[in-house]
Simulated assay, not measured.
Amino acid sequence: MSSIKPSWSERELPAFFKKWRTDWKNEDLDPDNYLDFEGGLRFVLAAAWLFCPETVEYRGGVFLKERFRQSTVDDWFTKLGEDRNRIEVVVNHVELWGTFNNTPLTDDDHLGEELPQLALALGECWQGILSSRYPDREITVEVSDEEDGSYGPTVTFWTSPSATPFG
């Protein structure tokens, strides 16, 4: 999987959800029901930071607040010159394997197999949120899954001045 403009149009329900619905003997249950039954509000509130991240502007770039350290970004500017797009890509790079490193991804729920769908959903959210938040910039969100398996599904973004005065 590799995508510049993320699109999560081929949704498939996660294996754990299908099993849960079968266990309840009710195929009409949907993901909203799961969140309500399983006390998911705490998780959804925490996930809001992942799907709707805070950002900071610095040296002409936009960076995820959780990943931004001024000294680190300054170091990247020293190493890469004024290639702000590359610096944004590096600093804003989120590896989902790392985000969920305390979750067994190879268990019976096959959660590791669900991460590419999560990456696409995350990318779509970032695209919309960042485009709305920074209408004077072109936002490029990249969702990828390294073929060698070294990083797993990743999401990152970079910005450029808008091509037209109207965005």
Rank of each mutant, 00 (worst) to 15 (best):
M1A: 10
M1D: 07
S2N: 12
S2H: 07
S3V: 11
I4T: 14
K5V: 10
W8A: 12
S9H: 14
P14W: 14
F16Y: 15
F17P: 06
K18Y: 11
K19C: 04
W20N: 07
R21Q: 14
T22L: 13
D23P: 09
W24E: 15
K25S: 09
N26F: 04
D28N: 13
D28F: 12
D30K: 15
D32P: 00
N33K: 14
N33E: 12
Y34M: 02
Y34S: 00
Y34R: 03
Y34H: 09
D36K: 15
F37I: 14
E38D: 11
G39N: 09
G40N: 08
L41V: 06
V44C: 11
V44E: 11
L45K: 15
L45M: 14
F51E: 00
C52L: 08
C52H: 07
P53L: 01
V56Y: 09
R59E: 12
G60K: 03
G60E: 04
G60W: 03
G60Q: 01
G61Y: 05
G61C: 07
V62S: 08
V62H: 03
E66P: 00
E66L: 08
F68D: 01
F68L: 02
R69T: 09
D75P: 02
F77P: 00
T78F: 03
T78C: 02
G81A: 06
E82Q: 08
D83R: 10
R84I: 04
R84G: 02
R84L: 02
N85P: 12
N85Q: 15
R86V: 03
I87M: 00
V89S: 09
V89C: 09
V89Q: 13
V91D: 01
N92D: 00
V94A: 03
V94C: 01
L96V: 04
G98H: 06
N101C: 07
T103G: 07
P104K: 13
L105F: 01
L105R: 06
T106V: 10
D108P: 00
H110V: 10
H110W: 04
L111N: 02
G112W: 03
G112V: 00
G112P: 05
E113A: 13
E114M: 10
E114P: 05
E114G: 01
L115M: 08
L115W: 06
L115Q: 05
L115T: 05
P116F: 14
Q117N: 12
L118I: 13
L118P: 01
A119H: 02
A119S: 00
A121C: 11
A121T: 11
G123V: 08
G123P: 08
E124Y: 01
E124V: 08
C125Q: 12
C125T: 07
W126A: 14
Q127R: 14
G128K: 09
I129V: 15
S132H: 14
S132R: 14
P135Y: 15
I139K: 06
I139R: 05
T140C: 10
D145M: 04
D145Q: 14
D145H: 11
E147K: 10
D148E: 07
G149D: 03
Y151K: 12
G152S: 11
G152T: 07
G152I: 07
T154S: 04
F157C: 01
F157W: 04
F157R: 01
W158I: 02
T159G: 03
T159Y: 09
T159K: 11
S162D: 07
T164E: 06
